[in-house]
């Protein structure tokens, strides 16, 4: 393992639950994530797998109540986010770590101009006056491809793709060390998706920023990520480099994700969706949470949680199939 200071982000054993009444939602369980400086990690999984909760915990913004961070450490450049006081948290938010949210339609305040909203973070972290921050906000707008003259306009005057550019401009305004992109293109149509992705990639390369890319789109992963974590029902079931995951995948769930993709070369082939539904996080199945949907399930899968099996330095999988082999069993 690389020494801590070279990692922008290091999450160790993170467990988060939502407690409502007498129900406990196991949103995130024992998650470990490492993002070295300048690298991008893709966090992949179905809706409800705990991806957004993991991301919000990095900003210590998991809504509490009902969210509770039960255990774990989140080191942002060596400093544990979960041990920071409110003042320190405000200093890092938007400054060291920034987030691009999923839905640009609702992520902007409808009664403030986009210029004000971009300038706000600059004003807080760069300690400059209104005028200077607004000037910088204009140049941020231009950076994401919107004329600076539109800074005085309100969110409702922008299209969805433009709003997402504004959200990106807000996130990048103070050149953070880590950018969390939470399904930044899900709410956009395909041509705009490509533009936004290209923009994120370009900006990231210019500034050597690290990134956590949350998505359920394996195409996006292939395009922007260095390492990939596959998340299922709050746990990371497989973790590896882009190559490990795309060419040497080990976990049946990862395989299921790839099999669900349409194949352009063979359009007659039926899509093979993963059968069943993602389990109710209040009532996770015993053992491996994926076993009811797994084509390779063995008796022990429903009884015992599989151990983490290291395939290589970067690649690990949590599955009973690999109890005594490294070779792919799929």
């Amino acid at each position: 393992m690389a020494d801590e200071m070279k990692n922008t982000l290091e999450i160790k054993g993170l467990t988060i639950q939502y407690v409502t009444g007498d129900e406990v939602v196991h949103a995130v369980t024992g998650v470990n994530i490492t993002i070295p400086v300048g690298k991008t990690l893709g966090l992949v999984g179905e809706t409800g797998a705990g991806k957004t909760t993991t991301a919000l915990s990095i900003l210590n913004l998991v809504p509490d109540p009902p969210g509770k961070i039960i255990s774990g450490e989140i080191f942002l450049e060596g400093e544990d986010v979960l041990k920071m006081n409110d003042k320190r948290l405000r200093e890092i938010r938007g400054n060291m770590v920034a987030m691009v949210f999923q839905d640009p339609m609702t992520s902007l305040n409808p009664i403030k101009t986009v210029g004000e909203q971009i300038a706000e973070g600059i004003k807080i972290h760069r300690k400059v006056d209104d005028k200077a921050s607004l000037e910088q906000a204009k140049s941020m707008l231009e950076l994401v491809g919107i004329p600076g003259g539109r800074a005085g306009e309100y969110p409702h005057q922008f299209s969805g793709g433009m709003k997402q550019r504004v959200v990106i401009a807000i996130a990048l305004a103070c050149s953070p060390d880590l950018l969390i992109a939470d399904e930044p293109t899900t709410a956009l149509d395909v041509t705009i998706q490509a533009q936004v992705l290209k923009l994120i990639n370009e900006l990231r390369e210019q500034s050597r920023m690290s990134m956590l890319m949350i998505t359920h789109d394996l195409g996006i992963v292939a395009e922007v990520c260095d390492t990939v974590a596959i998340m299922y029902a709050g746990r990371i079931v497989e973790y590896g480099t882009l190559e490990d995951i795309f060419d040497h995948l080990r976990h049946p769930y990862t395989k299921g994700l790839f099999d669900s993709l349409p194949d352009i070369g063979n359009r007659r082939a039926e899509l093979k969706p993963i059968r069943g539904l993602i389990p109710d996080p209040v009532n996770l199945p015993p053992g491996c949470a994926f076993h009811p949907r797994c084509d390779y399930a063995k008796p022990e899968c429903s009884q015992q949680l599989p151990a983490i099996k290291r395939i290589s330095d970067m690649h690990y999988v949590q599955c009973h199939l690999y109890a005594d082999t490294d070779m792919s069993m799929l």
Partner: peptide
């Protein structure tokens, strides 16, 4: 509970400004 409040918090805005500047007007 709105998303733009989360956006404001993620920018490092103080809780006071979140409530009186961002939420109250709406």
């Amino acid at each position: 509970r709105q998303d733009y409040i989360r956006t404001a918090r993620a920018k490092g805005v103080t809780e006071h400004a979140v409530i009186y500047d961002h939420a109250l007007g709406n």
